[in-house]
Computed example of a mutant assay.
Amino acid sequence: MKTRLKSLFLAIAVVATTSTFAQKKEIKTSESTINWTGKKVTGSHTGTLKLSKGFLVFDGDNITGGEFVVDMTSLAVTDLEAGKGKEKLEGHLSSDDFFGIANHKNAKLVVTKTKKTDKGYTVAGDLTIKGKTNPIKFILAVNGGTASTTLKVDRTKYDIKYGSGSFFDNLGDKAINDEFELAVSLKM
C-alpha cells in the first residue's frame, strides 16, 4: 500500500513539474479600444465600440484561446458632430438595416485556433454579429500587456446588406463597401 501511495505521489509530482498550465488573462475593458471604419463610394465614416468583457488564454508565452464580447449598444460615430448627422447615422447603424441592436445587443468572437508567427499570431475564430456566426482569421500582435489587430469584416455574411453593390443594382454613389475595418487594442 505504501509503495502504491509513493508511486501515486511521485506521478503527480512529475506531472505537476513538467506540465504548463493555461493562464486566463482578463482584458481591461476600460483601457481597451475598438475603432471602426466603414467606407462608401463618396467617403467613409469612423466610430467606436466598447468591449463588455474578454480574455486571452496563454500556455506559457503562447496564446491558445480567448473570447470577447462587444457591447453593440455603445456604437458611436466619431467623424460627425452632434446636430450634424451624428445621431441620424448612429440610429441607422443601430437599426435592422445594419446591426439590429435592439435585438442583438452583443457581438462575440471566440478564438478557435492560433499559430505563432514572426508577426505575432495568426488567429482563427468564430465571429457572431446580429445572431449569425462565421469563421474569421486575422493577425494579432502581442507586445507586453497589449494585444492589437486590424481586421476586415464582410458585413454581408451577417445579413447586413443595406447599400451593398453585391446585392443591389444601380446604387451609384450610394453604394457602401461590404467590408468594414476594426482596429482593436486590448490591454491585459
Results as ranks from 00 to 15, higher is better:
58 F>K: 11
89 L>W: 13
11 A>Q: 08
124 A>H: 05
37 T>D: 00
37 T>V: 12
145 G>M: 01
68 F>P: 05
19 S>K: 00
172 G>R: 12
133 T>N: 10
53 K>M: 00
91 G>H: 13
16 A>N: 09
105 K>V: 06
127 L>I: 00
49 L>V: 03
95 S>K: 06
178 D>S: 10
62 N>D: 15
95 S>W: 10
69 V>F: 09
126 D>Y: 01
72 M>S: 11
130 K>E: 11
56 L>K: 02
121 Y>E: 02
92 H>D: 11
33 T>Y: 02
169 D>N: 15
132 K>S: 10
152 K>M: 12
132 K>L: 10
15 V>M: 13
136 I>Y: 04
18 T>A: 13
163 G>A: 14
63 I>N: 02
71 D>V: 02
188 M>S: 01
185 S>I: 10
168 F>V: 07
52 S>E: 14
131 G>T: 11
7 S>W: 11
185 S>C: 07
20 T>A: 14
170 N>T: 11
145 G>H: 01
21 F>G: 08
42 T>P: 01
59 D>M: 12
156 T>P: 09
125 G>E: 05
136 I>A: 05
153 V>K: 03
106 N>C: 01
19 S>F: 14
177 N>G: 06
100 G>W: 01
91 G>V: 12
36 W>L: 05
156 T>Q: 11
74 S>N: 09
164 S>F: 11
28 K>M: 03
25 K>V: 15
150 T>P: 06
166 S>E: 14
101 I>Q: 04
35 N>Q: 13
